[in-house]
């Protein structure tokens, strides 16, 4: 009985160390991938920052004034249309009417 217990403990310790070693390899791979992602993330952040700055409403208005002759106009909510797909057919509906109907249903 004792032998069996010893054997089980010994085998499980060996198995654990083996599993641990293989886990370590995976962890190393994850570590390397993470290290490679880090500069990419930083680069993405910088690109996003540039994008946010260049596409900020302030900049867009500035470009609009610089390059276009016409002024920006306010959208009339009554003129907004909504595309509704039903039975493979696309129906153009008034956005406001659609919204009001949905509210009434609620």
């Amino acid at each position: 009985m004792k032998k069996v217990v010893f054997a089980i403990i010994f085998v499980s310790i060996l198995a654990t160390s083996l599993v641990k070693n293989s886990t370590k390899e995976i962890e190393d791979k994850i570590f390397i991938i993470n290290e490679n992602i880090r500069p990419l993330k930083s680069e993405l952040g910088d690109v996003l920052l540039e994008y946010n700055y260049l596409s900020s409403p302030d900049k867009l208005t500035q470009y609009q004034n610089q390059y276009f002759e016409k002024n920006l106009i306010k959208i009339d909510i009554n003129k907004i249309k909504k595309l509704v797909e039903k039975n493979n057919h696309i129906k153009v509906d008034d956005f406001l009417k659609n919204k009001n109907n949905a509210q009434q249903k609620n």
């Binding site: 010994f10 310790i13 160390s17 641990k20 370590k24 962890e27 570590f31 993470n34």
Partner: peptide
Amino acid sequence: LVISIIYSIQLLHLGSLKKETNS
């Protein structure tokens, strides 16, 4: 044997952990 295995496991484990936390 148990001590050395635990130690080596711990050593390997800590080694891999250390890198991650450092970064």
